[in-house]
């Protein structure tokens, strides 16, 4: 089903629109069957069909494949939605129940057989599910990695203490050299190679040079975490172009992570699955700030601020 491409940049909206369209199609087709062709499809059958279809959609349509845990959440939500739909009115609820009641009452040979088979199979099914859940597995255990653990109140780099809540990037400055939130927006399309570029763009260029000398081997030349060494690591390095990484973080948080590296992750960051070196051992404070400046400028994200 991946033949139909997800359009880069519009994927989340596209998924919602697709789901909406499919749901309408579903409703419409049963409406047509009923009104135009006189085939009334039982609510239970409709519900089952819709549920199976939603599972297939989440399982195969979305690419890359989504983890089981999320699929489970989605399936549960779908199930709840289907229940709310079929039981919303008394008529549809009776329609939905009717085949189930028929099986339980078992007035005809067919329903008797179905009932017998399910009564015998159900204990086995429950037993099998229980066993399947409990049996030892050779898969790697699920690990909860708090990717962005709570930062310390302050961090000390090259003997200088930075209070994370108040510190700011000394190079995020407008043309007068004053700190500015808006300077990145102003120069987002600027040319860092311009001789007469404003100070901000100069710092971005310097940051870029540092990035390509140190960081891009892992974080990739498009900053998307797909550097030439990236796939030697598990998990692969952070993808800065994703809305969930640096876009979610304060600049000082990034500063703390860059300077302290994987080894400086707190207890909460268990199991510390990061091999990023503590860059304070290789870069100066200024270089770290500049490279962060570059990362934000290049990805077009803005650092998180408090209100």
């Amino acid at each position: 089903m991946t033949a139909l491409k997800l359009v880069e940049g519009y994927m989340p909206v596209q998924m919602l629109i697709e789901m909406g369209g499919l749901a309408l199609l579903f409703i419409w087709s049963f409406y047509l069957l009923d009104k135009k062709m006189g085939i009334k499809v039982n609510k239970l059958a409709q519900a089952t069909g819709l549920f199976l279809f939603s599972i297939i959609y989440f399982r195969f349509r979305i690419y890359p494949p989504i983890p089981f845990s999320v699929q489970a959440i989605y399936a549960t939500m779908t199930l709840i939605g289907i229940f709310m739909w079929v039981s919303s009115t008394e008529t549809s609820w009776q329609d939905f129940r009717q085949p189930l009641i028929a099986v339980v009452d078992a007035k005809t040979p067919t329903t008797q057989i179905i009932r017998a088979v399910s009564v015998v199979l159900l204990p086995f099914l429950v037993g099998f599910l229980g066993w399947n859940n409990m049996k030892p597995s050779i898969d790697e255990p699920i690990e909860l990695r708090t990717v962005h653990p709570a930062p310390p109140a302050s961090t000390k780099v090259h003997g200088k203490t930075f209070v994370l809540q108040t510190a700011s990037n000394p190079y995020r400055v407008d043309d007068d050299g004053k700190y500015s939130d808006m300077v990145q927006k102003k120069y987002i399309d600027g040319n860092p190679w311009d001789e007469k570029a404003p100070p901000y763009m100069q710092y971005v260029r310097e940051g870029g040079q540092i990035f390509f000398q140190n960081c891009h081997f892992c974080h990739g030349d498009n900053l998307n975490g797909r550097g030439m060494f990236a796939f030697a690591f598990n998990p692969i390095p952070a993808n800065f172009t994703d809305a969930g990484t640096i876009a979610q973080l304060q600049e000082t948080f990034v500063f703390w992570r860059v300077s302290k590296g994987g080894i400086g992750l707190p207890r909460e960051g268990f199991p510390w699955a990061s091999v990023m070196p503590p860059w304070e051992q290789h870069l100066t404070i200024d270089e770290i700030w500049k490279v962060i400046l570059f990362e934000y400028w290049h990805t077009g994200y803005y650092p998180r601020t408090w209100d």
Partner: peptide
């Protein structure tokens, strides 16, 4: 043939068998 009592018995047998 598949009356409620028979089925109940079968289910009980399965459960006790499993235990």
């Amino acid at each position: 043939m598949f009356t409620g009592k028979v089925l109940g018995g079968v289910t009980a047998a399965i459960i006790f068998g499993a235990i």
